[in-house]
């Protein structure tokens, strides 16, 4: 039987959508494929209100304090942070590369913008990822329809604003279908 739908508690501030936080970490030396990707990704929790979000987030490690090859994923409840998910299969993502030291602040600004519905693109946002790597960190924002130029442009402009990025920051859009073809995520 399906589990009951999570709701905001009495007196709490509901979010437009419920969200789930996931964590993944690649074992050193292991080659990534879609099977072990799915095994490595762990659901941390799901929340329906601002208060529930902070109860999770305040106890989580900040992404900038993670080491190795790790990712936090924040996705709408019911959407798995994988290309294969029905909501993602025709989608794509904006990729922003960050120099070391910026990950925690950028991630917090990004997820607050998502939870607060600052992107104004209807149902198009699927989720966001912060990827901690050795040389640099990467944030990405996933949307449903890679071919929808008006939506992807609006997401890019909102990202620039909420991340407060330097004007020369390089942003790249990649359709998941293209990532599948060249077998790469970044």
């Amino acid at each position: 039987s399906p589990r009951p739908i999570l709701k905001a508690g009495p007196g709490e501030h509901p979010l437009q959508f419920n969200y789930s936080i996931w964590f993944s970490r690649r074992s050193p030396g292991k080659q990534q494929n879609s099977t072990n990707y799915e095994q490595n990704i762990k659901l941390v929790g799901t929340f329906a209100s601002v208060e529930q979000f902070w109860r999770f987030y305040s106890h989580m490690v900040r992404p900038g304090d993670l080491s190795g090859h790790s990712d936090f994923h924040l996705f709408k409840e019911g959407i798995k942070p994988m290309w294969e998910d029905e909501a993602n299969k025709d989608g794509g993502k904006w990729i922003v590369r960050l120099r070391k030291g910026l990950a925690s602040r950028c991630w917090e600004n990004l997820i607050l913008a998502m939870l607060g519905e600052q992107f104004m693109v209807g149902e198009e946002i699927c989720g966001a990822v912060i990827s901690i790597r050795f040389q640099e960190d990467i944030v990405s924002v996933w949307n449903k329809t890679a071919s929808d130029h008006a939506t992807t442009t609006r997401i890019r402009d909102t990202l620039r604003r909420v991340l407060n990025l330097p004007p020369n920051t390089i942003m790249e859009y990649k359709a998941h279908q293209d990532s599948l073809k060249d077998n790469s995520s970044f």
Binding site: G9, G11, E12, H13, P14, L15, E51, W54, S58
Partner: peptide, 21 residues
């Protein structure tokens, strides 16, 4: 329908609410 929109300042303020602990 109506969208539930929160700005960053409000969300940051909510961080300190007793319900968020």
């Amino acid at each position: 329908g109506t969208r539930i929109i929160y700005d960053r300042a409000f969300l940051m303020q909510m961080r300190n609410s007793p319900h968020a602990k």
